[in-house]
Nucleic acid binder design. Structure first.
Length: 153
DNA sequence: GCCAACGTTGGC
DNA sequence: GCCAACGTTGGC
């Protein structure tokens, strides 16, 4: 059963344009260092799941593209890279702590910002709209996905 | 820069 | 296992 997700990225790190410009429009979702978000990638995602690409910590936060999961989970290489901001000295090669998936951009869309999302009847329960939500990866209900795709035209 | 809302760490 | 202190996220 196909599932749907919202994945946050800071455009200063990896923007929707960066993802589009990557080989095969595909990026490894590096840098997740939160167990719940990791578990969604490691245990919840399957190839071909739908992804809402979201820009966070920027001038206009919101959904900026449609993507899909294109790999099964594998160890995040940045956890072993001493020069990386995401280096984790406590993670062992034999037992990697952080797993990720590859995500392929399908389509860059207009920016569907938070005010519009909040105003849309039917999206009240979208996880990313919840107060205090900080999780970088959240599940998206199929009915929310359909509404959002429709909104994006 | 502010601050709410978490998650993590570490002393006990 | 508790919980205070601390760090991070992310909108505003």
């Amino acid at each position: 059963m196909k599932k749907y997700w919202l994945m946050k990225s800071e455009p200063g790190e990896v923007s929707v344009d960066d993802a589009l410009a990557a080989p095969k429009s595909t990026v490894a979702w590096t840098g997740v260092r939160n167990y719940q978000a990791r578990n969604y990638m490691r245990d919840g995602m399957q190839v071909d799941d739908g992804v809402l690409f979201y820009h966070s910590s920027c001038a206009e936060p919101g959904i900026v593209g449609l993507a899909r999961v294109v790999s099964t989970p594998y160890p995040d290489p940045t956890q072993f890279d001493q020069k990386s901001h995401y280096y984790d000295p406590t993670s062992k090669k034999e037992e990697p702590r952080w797993q990720l998936v590859d995500v392929q951009m399908q389509k860059k869309t207009r920016t569907l910002g938070l005010p519009e999302l909040r105003a849309k009847p039917g999206l009240e329960d979208l996880v990313v709209l919840r107060k205090g939500n900080r999780l970088s990866i959240t599940p998206v209900d199929p009915k929310h996905w359909r509404l959002i795709v429709k909104l994006l035209g």
